[in-house]
Design a protein around this nucleic acid. Structure first.
Lengths: 205, 205
DNA sequence: TCGCACATGTAAATCGTTACATGATTAT
DNA sequence: ATAATCATGTAACGATTTACATGTGCGA
């Protein structure tokens, strides 16, 4: 009962526990599979978080044996359920995007045109990779293989956002590659007009 | 010369210093105005970072007076310039999105339908707000008011990504509102078919 | 002259990551 | 039998944030 403020990561785990009891490893699996797209956390952190939930009285743990091996299974408590319900009703904090590739792009003039294009190709690859990962998940749903049918509709709402983001990333990068390829170098074209024209077009949209 | 590894935030500041010398406050301004979209950091951190750059020999500081008031102006060193050039050539780390609203959506079934819709409306608002902020910036560029014309083309490449993301966010949330409004409650429709159909459509695209 | 926004930080707390560690299981 | 990878952590470090602190200039 250390009564600290729970973090979003805590609630992410707690939300999983609200569905059913999980072993730590499966919690981590589930997190990296689903929430990783919009709440990425290191695995070690996922192993630590349930312990904190127990310390705060939001979860209970019990030891089980799988074969020769001990595993800890966590289960949500009524108090945990209440905390979760309270939390989802509160307003959420803003989206937060950290995009190092964009920072590098921003300072691309201090590098080479090839490096600039490399970064953009990386963006295309990342967008494409996410779409692939999502395709695999979607296929399971379509095949009826999803473990929690009662959650399908909410999950799909989330997935559609990730899909849209990944697609936007890929398409943007693809278009930018076409443009940058025509620059004489990373310092760009002497003429600012095409860039300004692009902005004018966005303003009109 | 503490020779620690620089962080992305260090390079973000360093990149600004590569353009011209800045006072701390103006650095912070510039960061919140431009880079905040894809590299958000607390202001206090932005005040601390230049000091670290000086300690590492990547920047020099000098005191100036504006009226009665002292201000510290930072300037990049040749060593700093070299570090920056090296950095932009290295591969970038992945995009990282942290979206608490989506986490709350994911566990929306433990709340009310109104809360769910509130979160979605917040998403629309956030997308719209970003578009507005960008519009203001674009207008300056179009009017020819931008301070660093030689950087226009790279900046526009970045802006176009932010614009696309903000638009995708807004459009997704708008569409989801339409769908969720027809649910009987946060536990969603009894029928999973519409959700699955949406996935099928995405798979085909 | 009162208050508010500007301008510039500092100190402490903390969430999270990196790097390591180790036994168990499975494939070759 | 060996290697790989699964499963489960721990400990230390550190970047960043939160909360505080403080003086300045300006508008009403």
């Amino acid at each position: 009962m250390s009564s600290r403020e729970l973090t979003t990561t805590s609630y992410a785990i707690l939300g999983l526990l609200a569905v059913k009891p999980w072993a730590t490893y499966d919690l981590a699996r589930q997190m990296t599979r689903n929430l990783h797209f919009f709440w990425p956390r290191a695995e070690s952190n996922l192993y630590a978080e349930p312990k904190r939930l127990v310390a705060d009285g939001y979860a209970r743990s019990r030891r089980e044996a799988t074969g020769r091996r001990a595993r800890t299974v966590y289960e949500i408590t009524p108090s945990g359920r209440k905390a979760l319900e309270r939390w989802v009703l509160e307003p959420a904090s803003d989206f937060r995007l950290e995009a190092e590739p964009l920072v590098k792009l921003m300072y691309a003039m201090h590098g080479t045109k090839e490096a600039l294009l490399d970064h953009l190709h990386e963006c295309v690859a990342e967008g494409e990779a996410r779409r692939q990962a999502l395709r695999a998940i979607f296929a399971e749903y379509v095949a009826g293989d999803d473990p929690f049918p009662e959650r399908v509709h909410v999950n799909v709402v989330c997935y559609r956002f990730i899909w849209a983001s990944a697609t936007a990333l890929r398409d943007w990068a693809t278009e930018m590659i076409g443009i940058v390829e025509q620059w004489p170098g990373p310092t760009g074209p002497a003429d600012r007009e095409p860039s300004i024209a692009a902005l004018r077009e966005l303003l009109a949209s």
